[in-house]
């Protein structure tokens, strides 16, 4: 990761109308708390020293998922070129938590931001080789043009925020 890559990622997210927030790991919980709207659901964040805010349901039920306004997940990596976050399907429920609520908050370590899609596929292949089986490249907000105009927030989130852990 270089400053250039992070800057490129930020510009890509801006073009996608995705909000981005930078924080240290130590400040991450507070930062997430400031970003989310309740009710919120989440899955455990695999970054040292980072946990979900208390008012986030960390082991959500189907009802909590359906009612949630915000869903918080980690991103295994991110692709600067396109503003993409890679959401891995884990048993804890990353996939539905990133998909059902209106607002998806993805947390990514700055060191996991790769410059381009080629590097992204390198990371993907590594994860698959290490036993991962499913990853979604999520780029921007859910969208459709099927109803006579471009609309965001169809089946997936209409609002996306990426929280970058600058020291991870």
């Amino acid at each position: 990761m270089t400053t250039d890559t992070v800057g490129r990622f930020e510009r890509s997210l801006d073009e996608l109308a995705v909000s981005v927030a930078f924080t240290s790991a130590a400040g991450a919980t507070d930062r997430l708390d400031a970003v989310l709207e309740t009710p919120a659901v989440g899955v455990p964040l695999p970054f040292d020293g980072v946990s979900l805010p208390e008012r986030v349901a960390a082991e959500p039920t189907a009802t909590e998922l359906a009612d949630a306004r915000t869903g918080i997940t980690p991103a295994t990596f991110a692709i600067a070129e396109y503003g993409t976050v890679a959401i891995e399907s884990r048993a804890a429920g990353d996939e539905p938590v990133s998909l059902y609520p209106e607002h998806h908050v993805a947390v990514v370590a700055a060191s996991d931001i790769v410059p381009d899609i080629g590097a992204g596929f390198d990371r993907l292949a590594d994860r698959f080789a290490a036993g991962g089986d499913s990853i979604v490249f999520a780029t921007g907000r859910s969208a459709t043009a099927d109803m006579g105009g471009l609309v965001h927030g169809v089946h997936g989130p209409g609002e996306v925020t990426v929280v970058v852990l600058e020291d991870r």
């Binding site: 899955v43 359906a66 993409t84 399907s89």
Partner: peptide
């Protein structure tokens, strides 16, 4: 530039089913 969602899944996946017939059990 890229579609919103490129899902690459090798099913059956680890992702928990979302069972709305058991709405109060944790997904995981």
């Amino acid at each position: 530039p890229l579609s919103q969602y490129v899902t690459m899944l090798s099913p059956p996946t680890n992702s928990p089913t979302v069972d709305f017939e058991s709405p109060d059990e944790p997904l995981g």
